[in-house]
Design a protein around this nucleic acid. Structure first.
Lengths: 113, 113
DNA sequence: AATGTTGTCAACCAGTTGGTTGAGAACGTC
DNA sequence: GACGTTCTCAACCAACTGGTTGACAACATT
C-alpha cells in the first residue's frame, strides 16, 4: 500500500477528510479553522490533516503558532487520470462491450443463441 | 464510513483491487481467472472481489461453479463527478487562486508587501 | 515572567483490514 | 456415486485506523 495512488485513494476514503478538502478549495485555512465544524478533538483533526499531507493533497505553511493548509492539485490530477482510463468504457456502453469481449476471450458460445 | 463515496474510494485504495478492475475493463472473468496472476490464496482474492462488489464496482453472474465478474460503471462515475468539482480549480491555476482567496478571507495584510 | 492560544506528539483503545488455513457447498464428469 | 474443480465461509492473526486524553512546544500578549 506504499504506492501513491493507493495513498491518495485511502486519504479520500473518509468524509471528514473530503470535507476538509472541500473547505480548502475555497482558500487556505488554519488547523483550528478546519477543525471548528467537527465534533471531535483538535488532535483528531490534526491527524486527518496529516494523512492528507502525507498523500500530498495539501501543503502547510507556518506562520507564528498557526499552520495554514492549502490544497495541492497533483494527487487529484492523478486520480483524474486514473478514472479517465475508464471514462471511455462507459461512454461506449460498458455492459454490452465487456460481455462481448469476455465471450470472445473464453470462446463462450452462449452468444450464439 | 457508510457513505457510498467513502466505500468506493476505500475499495480503490488497494493495488490488487485496481488491477482486478483493470483486468475486468477488458471483459468479464471468473474468480479463478482473476486470481491467477497473484501470489496469494484464492480466498484472499475472493475477499478482494467481495469488497469491490460491496462498493458496487463489479457485479457477479453465476454459471455452474463459476462466478463471472464484470465491471459496473456507476461508482466510477461518482468518483469522476467528485473529482470534476476540483478540475476547474487546477485549470485556473490553483496555487495563486487559493492563496488570494484565503488572504481575502482572513484580511491578511502580508499580500501588501 | 506569567498566561493564553494553537497545534503536535505519544500512549492507549476498540474496530477494521488483509492475509492465512481448513472445511465444505455446488457443480460437472468419470 | 466417487471424484475433481471452483469458490465461499468461518476462525484466526498481525497490522493499521480513527478516535480519545494528557503533556508540551512554540508563539503572542500582558
Amino acid at each position: 500500500m506504499t504506492d501513491t495512488l493507493s495513498l491518495t485513494f485511502s486519504a479520500l476514503a473518509d468524509p471528514t477528510r473530503r470535507a476538509i478538502l472541500a473547505r480548502l478549495a475555497q482558500g487556505q485555512a488554519s488547523v483550528g479553522e478546519l477543525a471548528a465544524p467537527y465534533d471531535m478533538s483538535l488532535a483528531a483533526v490534526s491527524k486527518h490533516i496529516k494523512v492528507l499531507e502525507n498523500a500530498g493533497l495539501i501543503a502547510r505553511e507556518k506562520d507564528a503558532q498557526y499552520r495554514y493548509c492549502k490544497l495541492q492539485a497533483g494527487p487529484l490530477q492523478d486520480i483524474d487520470g486514473w478514472v479517465g482510463a475508464y471514462r471511455e468504457l462507459w461512454r461506449d456502453n460498458l455492459d454490452q462491450l465487456d460481455s462481448f469481449l469476455a465471450d470472445m476471450q473464453r470462446g463462450d458460445d452462449t452468444a450464439k443463441q
